[in-house]
Amino acid sequence: MTPTSPQEPAPLEARGVAWAAGERFVLLDLDVTLRPGELLLLSGHNGAGKTSLLDVLRGERPVDRGAVLLQGVPLPEVAVHELPRHVASLHHRPGLYFDLTGRENLTLMAALCGHTLSVAEVEAALTRVGLEPAAWDRRVRHYSRGMKQRTGLARVLVSGARVWLLDEPSTGLDPAGRATLAQVLRDARDEGRAVMVVTHDPELIALADRHLVLRGGQVHEGAL
């Protein structure tokens, strides 16, 4: 694990963040810091605001109070096209085009993040997430839920982002898929990425370096 030095800004940080859905504050004066080389587990009961927090952190929802800082710079000051280079996310929908193949999706998504991938690099990413070669050139529409999830994870891999925000990444995965996901997360941590995972999967919970519980709109340190 690589802790952030006091001089070095955190890859991603929320300071005093408040966000309301209508009249109700879902997030209230909340502080979170993602550190490089750390796997941070976020939990909380249904409706606690876990997905909303991830949306706020990836700039999808503007905050009502406080600030989200990307390497010390408030998100509104970060050019919109810079975000995908730094923050990659996987949420309820896999972030894929269903009428493109797995291979075409990865090539396109990497290009949108400013990377030109070789055929070998695309195949390496698909292999790393355990997608069968027979499926690489099939349309994502014909994939199972788990295969879509694996391809979505491969999309996160090829983005090259230093911060990963993953919302229930093991949804739809079989035991082999969950083991692959766990290995990908271990590797990400070893590569110095800051990873925040929302999950109820015991296998992923066991990997976490830190556990935060979202309750009453605020985060509390939880037991591992």
């Binding site: 972030g95 894929l96 949108l112």
Partner: peptide, 8 residues
């Protein structure tokens, strides 16, 4: 359908 709008 695929949730790609924020990405593109």
């Amino acid at each position: 359908e695929g949730g790609t709008l924020p990405l593109v």
